[in-house]
């Protein structure tokens, strides 16, 4: 009698052959498969997210008038304050331009921002990603930085027609340069994402912290972008450094853990910063 195991032998061999063929396949057809499956699913995700927004909208329209009036008042106040800020920022910007002109320094990388709703979030140990509802058609490009206010969310890891995937700061594979608050010599340290176990707040690794650096006492040291690498504008918050620093087993520096700035796993809306000049990372991927 033919046992199931023996029956399986032929098909298993076929599957193994198929796997080998797949591995040897050039990357283009594999990319094609990946892209087409992603595009196929995108509309469903967008629809899902729109439905959720609709539900939220209905929820809001049913709110009582007192609440609406109160929030309207708050908004007006916030607006007035922000208008003042904008005015002072404009004068600062023109002053800055004038000084740069005098010193003949090139202008920093300039960005145009695209606001995007988050369609889906997913965090496991090996990745932390967002799907946002902006894609190639909106000008989003691979590797673009993604922020939330003055806080870094991550960078674009995959671009589809109308959606993109954003790799969060804590996701393995993310890396960028940073500076630490309280470091007078303003030395460059590195932030790299790492696998994060469930139920523990996500953390990124901070490496190459100079040995003579000690976090400012009594307050968390903020980790900020340097603006040197051309990816992020300078001074954005990446997160806060946890006070325990360990001595790296090799080399003359310390390593630490960083808690991300944005509530990364709950974020609902982000801004994609699209550089006006093409950056090397777009072609080096």
């Amino acid at each position: 009698m033919e046992t199931p195991l023996r029956r399986l032998r032929g098909p298993l061999a076929a599957l193994a052959a198929l796997l080998l063929a797949w591995v040897l396949l050039p990357s283009l057809p594999r990319l094609f498969v990946r892209e087409s499956f992603a595009e196929f699913q995108a509309p469903a995700l967008v629809a899902l997210s729109r439905t959720r927004e609709l539900v939220r909208h209905l929820e809001l329209t049913n709110a009582d008038r007192e609440t609406l009036a109160a929030s309207g008042r708050d908004l007006a106040r916030a607006n007035a304050a922000l208008e003042l800020r904008v005015l002072s920022l404009e004068s600062l910007a023109s002053e800055n331009r004038r000084l740069r002109g005098m010193l003949a320094t090139p202008p920093p990388a300039e960005f145009r921002s695209v606001v995007a709703r988050v369609a889906a979030r997913e965090s496991s140990t090996w990745w932390s990603r967002l799907v946002i509802r902006r894609g190639r058609e909106d000008g989003v490009r691979l590797g673009c930085p993604v922020v939330l206010g003055d806080r870094v969310v991550g960078r674009v890891a995959a671009v589809h027609l109308n959606t993109s995937e954003v790799e969060l700061v804590t996701s393995p594979g993310f890396r960028c340069s940073a500076m630490l608050d309280g470091d007078e010599r303003r030395q460059v340290v590195f932030v790299t994402g790492a696998p994060n176990p469930p139920f523990v707040g996500p953390r990124a690794d901070v490496t190459h912290i100079p040995r003579e650096y000690f976090p400012p006492a009594g307050q968390p040291a903020v980790v900020r972008t340097t603006g040197l690498g051309g990816l992020y504008p300078p001074g954005l918050r990446l997160g806060t450094l946890e006070p325990v620093l360990t001595d790296a087993p090799e080399g003359a520096w310390k390593t630490g853990k960083m808690a991300p700035a944005a509530e990364l796993r709950n974020v609902a809306e982000v801004a994609v910063l699209i550089p006006t000049q093409p950056q090397p990372y777009e072609e080096l991927r």
């Binding site: 889906a120 997913e122 496991s124 994060n196 139920f199 796993r265």
Partner: peptide, 14 residues
Amino acid sequence: ADLLSDSLAPWGLA
């Protein structure tokens, strides 16, 4: 399941 993952995301579960 995606919807479920979305709401479990704060805990790092997919």
